[in-house]
Design a protein around this nucleic acid. Sequence first.
DNA 1: TGCGACGATGTTACCGCTAACATAGCGACG
DNA 2: CGTCGCTATGTTAGCGGTAACATCGTCGCA
Lengths: 338, 338
Amino acid sequence: MSDDAQRSRPRLKEVANLAGVSTMTVTRALNAPHKVAAATRVRVQAIARSLGYTPDLTARGLSLQRTGLVGAVVPLLTNSLIAEIVQGLSDTLAHNDFQLLVGATGFSARAEEAMVRAFLSRRVDAIYLTGISHTVETVRMLRQAAIPCVEGGNLARHPIDMAVGYSSKDAASKVTHYLIGRGYGPLGYIGAWPRDNDRARDRRRGFTAACRKAGIAVDDALCIETDLDLNAGARAMAELLDRRAGVRAVFCSADTLAVGAMFEAQRRGLSIPDDIAIAGFDDLDIASQIVPSLTTLRVPRYEIGRRAGEMICERLAGRAVRESVVDIGFAFVPRATA
Amino acid sequence: MSDDAQRSRPRLKEVANLAGVSTMTVTRALNAPHKVAAATRVRVQAIARSLGYTPDLTARGLSLQRTGLVGAVVPLLTNSLIAEIVQGLSDTLAHNDFQLLVGATGFSARAEEAMVRAFLSRRVDAIYLTGISHTVETVRMLRQAAIPCVEGGNLARHPIDMAVGYSSKDAASKVTHYLIGRGYGPLGYIGAWPRDNDRARDRRRGFTAACRKAGIAVDDALCIETDLDLNAGARAMAELLDRRAGVRAVFCSADTLAVGAMFEAQRRGLSIPDDIAIAGFDDLDIASQIVPSLTTLRVPRYEIGRRAGEMICERLAGRAVRESVVDIGFAFVPRATA
DNA sequence: TGCGACGATGTTACCGCTAACATAGCGACG
DNA sequence: CGTCGCTATGTTAGCGGTAACATCGTCGCA
């Protein structure tokens, strides 16, 4: 009768017809084998395999009200730090048969909101968010959706749902405290734009707090906020050296900026740390390799993604997670640049 | 009657009930406004907005047989080159209301196959694949699925469907040719593992071809294949310097490796390019910033992703793409290291 | 004034899969 | 030997949308 079975992907029904059973038996043979007689099971599975049958996850999702999709909202993908988090998330979720939707906001809270809305419309089973500051509407939507949600990176004290991260402020304070302790003299700061970026904001706060605590006045003229890339780091260092007198040490709120700054110093023939000391943040691969090696702060990037993925999987497996706020810590790594 | 409208996300039906119309009218008011009387349209839209109605894309996907999902299969996300391609793809697709599923294979063709299968099961509307060598089964599945598919990076002569990229081999030849022309003497090669990585394989082929063409014997002892990261680049350079006598110039098939190699040379107090010349491939941001600046080959990374995204959107909009194989070109960038 | 065309809306069926309930066959047991 | 209970399988309905066709006024024109 219906011999048009070849034309496209086979459906459950085709398998059922060929096996001479109902679609329910096929579903069972594939998804709950123990509920089907051995002979039937083998026959159905063989036919499904020979037809190259693959379940339609869209249909399954609609029926089960569970899509197997997880959405990750990140500022951008080209940042090493973020990329490693996403990689950790991706690996963990893939192991558990979830698929990862990613969206880049370009550090815009409005774009984040739109992305979250789109993901919820897609009925993702869970969401990973970068950072802890979101629009009111974003939070409202996520609360209402009542799906697992992990905020990663900066540690949320009162997360929407769950959180994995570390205190950006404490970490930045630690590095700054070290720089102050070395007694270099006038301290500069190079960081990313704080707008819609709580990590950047809190790192600067940590810097300021450490200075204040040490009784040092923060000279705003020596603090530069800029884009988050190598070139911007170099330009910022150039500006500090050219137009802001007397900087002797600089805290960069990201290794990318620190490395750019180092290159600029090197181009000018300055000796690091003798002429200018530099400290970074993140401990990217390059920090340990660059010459001289970069004093920085290690953050378990991949680990953040992995833990976030695990928490999501736990919850979606119906188990409660023990700690819904995980402080993953950080480690100060003194090297040669400061 | 049914006053439980609040408990979860509103459905089309809720909106319809409140507006006193059928669900079809609501669908039309939202998706094809001109098909509905002005008064009705306004009323329905207002109610939908006030309820915070969002269409269920899973259900829509099932009904339309079109999900609005695009899958991207990449080796890993932590590589800058790849990350920029994905960013280009993501930006373009997001603009056209598609959502991006990403999967990382870790340079395994088998993992790629599994990922493609999973994406097809999810009924993605199109797929982006990295590189041009895939398992037979991967190709078969994609052909059968008959959805738009772009192979990006290395240029495919006979793509599964469409392709955007450049000739890795020609590009590598160009750099090598330049190195040979500078007359440094014994030439070394540091590249990524070629297994399941046609870009790496073809770059080495380009290196070999250029040497042969110049009548230079390739000394396999001076060729090292390794992981694709900074540390591996540094280790490889260390090995060349320690155990392989007389290398005077090295072609690195990726900037990441070249930069690692440069750092190792610097640690040994070698002068670049006087003691050892180095050339890279990719023209990452760091290539122009590092001191001395890195001679390399520029590849329009973001552009590859963007073009791929555009081709996919064109096809999904029902328009034919003019060129199904786009050679995006490359540019040799001579700088200070070689 | 009657009829066809057209605009606005409703009804039905289906996308592919699965939960929940229904049924049929069969062995055990009082 | 009838009933219980278990296993294997089938039937029905529904997930939330939308295409396709049906219906019902209304208006223009012969």
